[in-house]
Design a protein around this nucleic acid. Sequence first.
DNA 1: CCGTTGACGTCGG
DNA 2: ACCGACGCCAACG
Length: 118
Amino acid sequence: MTTLASPFTRRVLSVVRRIPPGRVATYGDVAAAAGGPRAARAVGTIMRQCGSHDVPCHRVVGAGGALGGYGGNLELKRALLRAEGVVVAGSRIREFAERQWLAPRGGTARRQNPLSQR
DNA sequence: CCGTTGACGTCGG
DNA sequence: ACCGACGCCAACG
């Protein structure tokens, strides 16, 4: 095990793992949360590798609510999302803005702010 | 190390 | 709304 992947990759996997059921995140958002706002494509490359089911890769979708890809098994991706309550019409996610999940700020998030007052 | 590939994103026609 | 061109980044050969 032992971290075969680069820091960025493991960060991406970390983020995807945190996506709650019934919610979705775009490749771009995941990339940004992982520290590479311009690495949306790289996230796709990583997802493709995602052989482990520990990562809900089906919750990662395209920008604007596009379905994105799934190794040619888009039907499966649709079914999985649908099973979580996400309505998919054609290659588009309905109420995308409401379904979209954004990772909390601060990356891995630090505990609360010791002095959180603005 | 370099060139190619690809589950992306944004803009223009 | 659909298609094409560019850009960006990591993985693969």
